[in-house]
Amino acid sequence: MMRIILPLAGLVLLALLPLWLSDYGLGLMVGAATYVTLASAWALFSGHTHYVSLATVAFYGIGAYTVAVLNEVLPYPLVLMVAGAMGAGLALIVGLSTLRLKGVYFVIFSFGLAELIRQLITWYEVNVTGTLGRYIFLEITTAGIYWQMLGLGALTLALTAWIHRNRLGLALRVIGDDEAVAAHSGIHLARVKLIAFVLSAVILTLAGAITSPRYVYVEPSIVFNPTVSFLTVIMALLGGANRLCGPMLGAVPLFLLFEWLSAHFPDSYPIFLGLMFIAVVFVLPNGVIAGVETLRHKLREARS
């Protein structure tokens, strides 16, 4: 019972925050909620399967661009639905063709995909429509964006929790350990990976769509910025990508830290990001949660 009440109470509390926060504080909360959603959605697919995807920003950017193109043509809820469908469609095509690639090939493919989409949209906008940037004029307040993102984040965590308890989650864990054993045990590899990839991609796309009005002005180099993909990966890994709350625990402090760094030390920002990656690999290879558990375990053994 507490397992449901506590998160719900936390969610209500978070939803009430706009009543007290300044504009700046609310802006920070939107950013934090966005990265919690992105990192959790990324982990939904990559956390167990160990397929390191750098396509996060491809979906995020497509979400933002769909809103930029359609915001004056269709009513907002319909725009969101179109964005979700675009994300699902792209994920299906990409997934069907690439999920048999493994390891570094998949990493590079996913990175190349985001770059390719950015290049193609840039080319299209410059040569066909004749405008590089687009404006988003929507009657949505920052609090409105925050609530939507909070809802999407909560939905992502609930979905992840549900998947962890059902066959899909178990199948993903087996695939992460050994694909051959998974297949010989009766797991349909392509289908399992595709379902998880598409679910994850739809959330990533919706996150881009929901947050896009914050940009007001949108162009490919802004919404397809590869840093978003890198940040998402390091946040999820820092907390522990195979745990329900791991991505969230990694995303909130890292987002705040990076905000602070980019405000005060914009030049040393990449140095810090680099050190974070190296530190996670060498010090916390399984994330903070697992690290703390191991430490506790050792302390207990030392005492007894």
Binding site: P270, I271, G274, I278, V281
Partner: peptide, 25 residues
Amino acid sequence: TGRLEVDSILATFGLLFLIQGLLLL
């Protein structure tokens, strides 16, 4: 084991940003 692949990808990502940051400075 296959772990080297993911580890080396992440570690060299780190190196990428580290060198980039140092060059920027």
